[in-house]
Amino acid sequence: MTARTFVCRCEDVTLTEIERAIAAGLSDVEEIKRYTGLGTGPCQGKECLSALGRLLVARGLISPAALRPFTARPPVEPVTFGALAAGATEVPEDPSP
């Protein structure tokens, strides 16, 4: 593998960057996400999360049984503000001073 192996294509996170995170003592998918930005782009980790999980298991940093995905953030897929605005039930007005 070369230094330019991309694990997360949305956020351009390379294998080298993940190796650096592991070298800094990080071993949890939540902390590696926040250290590298992995999984925070348009696919929301659907592509990269399993690759990261496999790497952590292969390194013996976590057991397959203990491995959990990071918290799923809504919406499931990108939705426009326009479509969401149409679903508002309350009138968005708050006469705060």
Binding site: T40, G41, P42, Q44, T71, R73, P74, P75, P78, V79, T80, F81, G82, L84, A85
Partner: peptide, 10 residues
């Protein structure tokens, strides 16, 4: 912004 897409909320 009506045409922009929401990616993630937390």
């Amino acid at each position: 912004t009506a045409a922009m897409k929401v990616l993630r909320q937390w």
